[in-house]
Design a protein around this nucleic acid. Structure first.
Length: 446
RNA sequence: GUGGCCUUGGUGAAAUGGUUAUCACUAGAGUUUGUGGCACUCUCGUUACGGGUUCGAUUCCCGUAGGCCACCCCA
């Protein structure tokens, strides 16, 4: 066992407060309705579009990412939480999930399933970056991946899913950018063209672009520095250098999107930071006013080479990944109301020892009937119990006291009107169900 | 990794180089124990951590950690 430093006790004998790790956050009970809202939407989409869930592990071998995302990318170069485990080998907290999905596809012989294989995932990802708005070191993504089909209609479908998803959760203004970065062959030709062009303009470039020119020329296209804009606007565009295959693929994708009535913007400057992308790439923004890369809600594209890079048979694939925190922050900003399904409608209050025992049993009985009841059986005064009922904003309070126990009855109090009825204790569940159903019906009617 | 601003109870704020750090909200306990949303009382802080300057620091300085924001890059 490695030695663990004990926290020093201060003069006051209390231990120093333990802080959260930089860039890590607790997802608190108050946040959960948002998470649940998105989770429900994702699950219903997965079901509707025929995706099966997969949960790859959070820890993976470092090679998985150096081979897939690319050694030269920032994610791999400086943002991975990697460490040596006590045994052997380098392990890494996954920075994204697509590579794991491709690995799983190979590992479990999914080539033998009817193609394409449609998978979705949900979970935490880790990148060791400096935190800022819309960026944490642990964040969550969900994603949809379709492996084993190279047809452009699949690209369009993935984009349709994400577009419809955001419509569904109440984002009416989203903006989808799409582009094609070709296959490795035509991209190679294009890259030499692009670097030749930029080299001729080298003197005009910002410092960052000079670095990009050597390191990752594709990224030159999304430089935000105003001084580079002119150079950028005149730069050769990849769509003009796509080979016939890639060009017709891209045109078909666009055609299908038109057919599905999905609005998008062709963005010749859109490139993505992971090496495995081929052909179609796209990004989703909350509105056309916020289209900087930090505000991207999600993105994806085709990755026809990935499975092969990881040692599988050549398998075309497309996918999309969505940032959940970013989506939630937009839900909040747009003040989209999300349902809070967890809050109880009933509070059970008791007075006196006998009533407490009876309440204990009643609570269990109601729970078995799937009636969500709040209580605080350790509190004795009715006043404080009703106070709590009020704070929980329940619709009804059940009141069980000495008198009711003797009479075999129970009180149902309507918390809004203050009207109370005495009912037969045995009919408690029946009455509650009746009341809750009435309420439900009136909500549906209005 | 670079830069800017910031850090006072659970939350949001206030204040001062000098005895018990103020207020509001929240939470808990209570106002003699069968009725909530009001009111009142009480309780909850070594002023992020470490060091320095000083007779004296929460206040000034430095470091560390964390937060926010921007760049790089990404979701």
């Amino acid at each position: 066992m490695p030695k663990i430093k004990e926290p020093k006790l201060g003069k006051s004998q209390t231990a120093k407060t333990v802080q959260l790790l930089r860039g890590f956050k607790d997802i608190l009970p108050a946040d959960q309705p948002y998470w649940q809202f998105i989770r429900d939407a994702v699950e219903s989409f997965a079901k509707g579009y025929g995706f099966a869930k997969i949960d790859p592990p959070i820890l993976e071998e470092v090679n998985l990412f150096t081979r897939s995302i690319g050694k030269q990318t920032d994610i791999v170069e400086k943002e991975m939480f990697s460490f040596t485990d006590q045994g052997e080998g380098n392990v890494v907290l996954r920075p994204e999930a697509t590579a794991s999905i491709a690995r799983a596809y190979i590992n479990h012989g999914m080539v033998n399933l009817p193609q394409p294989v449609k998978l979705y995932y949900w979970g935490p990802m880790f990148r060791r970056e400096r935190p800022q708005s819309g960026r944490q070191r642990q964040f969550h993504q969900f994603g949809f991946e379709i492996l084993g089909d190279g047809s452009p209609v699949i690209d369009a479908q993935i984009i349709a899913i994400i577009s419809n998803f955001y419509q569904q959760i109440g984002f009416s203004q989203i903006s989808i950018h799409i582009n094609s970065i070709g296959c490795p062959q035509c991209r190679k030709v294009y890259l030499s063209e692009l670097t030749a062009y930029y080299r001729s303009k080298r003197k005009l470039l910002c410092e960052d672009c000079k670095k990009r020119l050597v390191k990752n020329p594709l990224r030159l296209l999304d430089c935000k520095n105003p001084s580079c804009q002119f150079v950028k606007n005149e730069a050769p565009q990849i769509v003009d250098w796509l080979d016939d295959e890639c060009k017709s693929h891209f045109m078909k994708v666009v055609e299908y999107l038109d057919e599905l009535n999905i609005s998008y913007k062709l963005n010749p400057h859109l490139v993505r930071g992971l090496d495995y992308y081929t052909k179609t790439v796209f990004e989703v923004f909350p509105s056309d006013k916020e289209e900087s890369s930090q505000s991207a809600l999600g993105g994806g594209g085709r990755y026809d080479g990935l499975v092969e890079i990881l040692g599988g048979r050549p398998t075309p694939a497309v996918g999309v990944a969505v940032g959940i925190e970013r989506t939630i922050s937009q839900l909040r900003q747009k003040e989209i109301k999300v349902p809070d399904t967890s809050s109880p409608q009933i509070f059970l209050a008791q007075i006196g020892d006998q009533a407490k025992i009876k309440a204990l049993n009643l609570f269990e009985q109601l729970r078995k009937e799937n009636i969500v009841v709040a209580e605080n059986l350790s509190k004795d005064s009715l006043k404080s119990q009703l106070e709590l009922a009020d704070k929980l904003k329940v619709k009804y309070a059940l009141i069980l006291g000495q008198k009711e126990v003797m009479d075999g009855t129970i009180l149902i109090r309507d918390m809004e009107s203050g009207v109370q009825e005495i009912i037969d204790f045995k009919k408690t569940t029946h009455e509650l169900k009746k009341k809750l159903n009435n309420q439900l019906n009136s909500v549906i009617q209005s």
